[in-house]
Design a protein around this nucleic acid. Sequence first.
DNA 1: CATAGATATTTGCACTCGCAAGTACTCTCT
DNA 2: AGAGAGTACTTGCGAGTGCAAATATCTATG
Lengths: 169, 169
Amino acid sequence: MTSEASDERMTTVGLLFESAAGLRRLFHRQAEMSGASANQSFDILIRLARSDGNQLRMSELAVQASLTPSGLTRAVDRLAQQGLVSRRICPDDRRGSFAQLTSSGRALMDQTIPEHLSHIDQVLDDVFTPDEEAQFSSYLRRLRDYALERNLAAGLPCDESVDPCISDI
Amino acid sequence: MTSEASDERMTTVGLLFESAAGLRRLFHRQAEMSGASANQSFDILIRLARSDGNQLRMSELAVQASLTPSGLTRAVDRLAQQGLVSRRICPDDRRGSFAQLTSSGRALMDQTIPEHLSHIDQVLDDVFTPDEEAQFSSYLRRLRDYALERNLAAGLPCDESVDPCISDI
DNA sequence: CATAGATATTTGCACTCGCAAGTACTCTCT
DNA sequence: AGAGAGTACTTGCGAGTGCAAATATCTATG
């Protein structure tokens, strides 16, 4: 019914989804065990912590966190309610706003990121050699860029100005 | 604050999540455009379609679809309500049940899977050479198995009988 | 065989997310 | 300047998911 080759390719895509889901669960549990709140929105906090001035435009953050604008609004609402993030209106464009880590959010990340990094180190050390890891990462980047481009192309009927320089994590 | 190496590794993990999310969105849109219902539960239907007798134990299906047992119950409920899947009590163990494709579900998949496969073909052809694809797939498999094992180990305090032969996709 | 402890699955409840519509602001063209 | 189109973000609402507790069934042990 389905050719051998297509079977393998379907499996490859399945493996991608399973890997991502598996690692997400793993990190989620680990973050839970080590103190701090283990929201899905951890991702958002990390990206803010790694940005200039600990702030990012909402739309930029939405793309990076793989959320829709609406999903991001709610997520930032929750983080703001916890006092970890605050909104700052963008002076250049009053439609837009920045999400910015509060000092309390910054403190939380200072405490949490090292733990998270050590969890990541452990996984990658266990699974890959350094060379393999670099190779794997470059494959992922290609795939990510491709998916991003195709999704943008679908959203905006014919906008050619795809920014190729979406910042990483 | 964070070392260069750790930075890259964090990026790698971020890329994994973004790739998975990006492809999921892409396939979701494509499935939507070509007729059939584009539920997230498409994944479940595919796995059933590729199993012996078009049926799978609920618990097995939950692992394969990266859902919790409770999440799977609801998902199968919905599919059953649409007439695509039915429940069959397991004769050997009356606690358990099988989810099985109905003839209508089978028909839907016969019609839908080829389209899905062609979408996958297009992505992989565009992004990878055959060799790279094989390499990438083997990396993903290692990562998936690792995450699965570690998550199981966490769930069952000290059960060593981890089945290494979880079927693919 | 009776009972305690595991296992497979299902519900109650709360939370998160996406889509479509709404609001506020900016840009363009005349 | 002013109308119209486009952009950035926010809400109403419905749908999917996980966690914890409940239910039904199996299994091991005395």
